[in-house]
Design a protein around this nucleic acid. Structure first.
Ligand code: FES
Ligand code: FES
Lengths: 132, 132
DNA sequence: TTTATACCCGACTAAATTAGTCTGAATTAT
DNA sequence: ATAATTCAGACTAATTTAGTCGGGTATAAA
């Protein structure tokens, strides 16, 4: 409960790794997978998600790889999490309206408040704070 | 990712329900299960966890049930979560030292910082804030 | 223009976690 | 005694997360 997924961890590791290189440099998946002992295919998927999300740029072909595209200080953690894992909420009822409990639930609004607090906390934190 | 479990939700629902009664009153599992449409056995287990954790008192026998024991304003959400679900952390490496990544991980300390932030947030929030 | 390298994508399987069930006991008011 | 209730733990089912596989596309360089 309340844990980050591996995909998120792998994404952060990859970003931090790339951030320590000069901005022109391109890093391929294999390099990161080996260095941090991450399953190659899974890391690949994670990098692809970041590419789709505009966080990194993909360079195809030999000597290809990825490089950081976005300004990491402008991406907050909620955006980041949601790009990788999809909608985020403490309870399903936050984004999925057909949670069974919903009709009888007596704690819905306090839970929403906590949820907002949590989102706020992560929104006020940039990816850069973690990777730099 | 970053979701509460049903057991936690059920526990909060039960507490809020009991809090709306006079302090002498005893509430049995069935009453709550029916009112909020919660699987009886699962709610039973949850209430047992709260009894073990000293949050509620159990009254055995016919007309038995539970009543709130602890001062809910003195129990913070981390204590509460951990009584019901066990140790809590954003990543396993927070409480379980043999996470494989740990040796190579380049984001360990920033992740710990976020984890502390999250714990702080929940520690500064009492159960009472949700159930009252 | 061929080849090898690297990204792309979705379907698939495996593992772990969470949710829920069942069975049988212990406690106690009536 | 009996019935109502909590207690305990093993069990199964469902869901989510983690990881794998196969077959593509793009492109640099020989
Ligand atoms: S239904 Fe969303 S908190 Fe209960
Ligand atoms: S090993 Fe704990 S954050 Fe990477």
């Amino acid at each position: 409960m309340l844990k980050l997924t591996r995909k998120v961890e792998y994404a952060l590791i990859a970003l931090r790794h790339m951030q320590n290189k000069e901005s022109r440099a391109v890093t391929n998946t294999k390099e990161i997978a080996e260095m941090y002992d991450i399953p190659l295919e899974l890391l690949a998927k994670t990098l692809q998600l970041m590419a789709r999300g505009g966080i990194v740029d993909a360079v195809h072909g030999p000597n290809g790889g990825y490089k950081i595209k976005a300004k990491l200080e402008n991406i907050n953690m909620i955006e980041f999490f949601e790009k990788i894992e999809g909608p985020l909420g403490l309870m399903d009822c936050y984004f999925d309206s057909d949670c069974t409990q919903i009709s009888a639930c007596n704690i819905r609004s306090p839970i929403q408040k906590i949820n907002d607090n949590m989102r706020n906390m992560f929104e006020n934190m940039s990816v850069d704070e973690i990777t730099q």
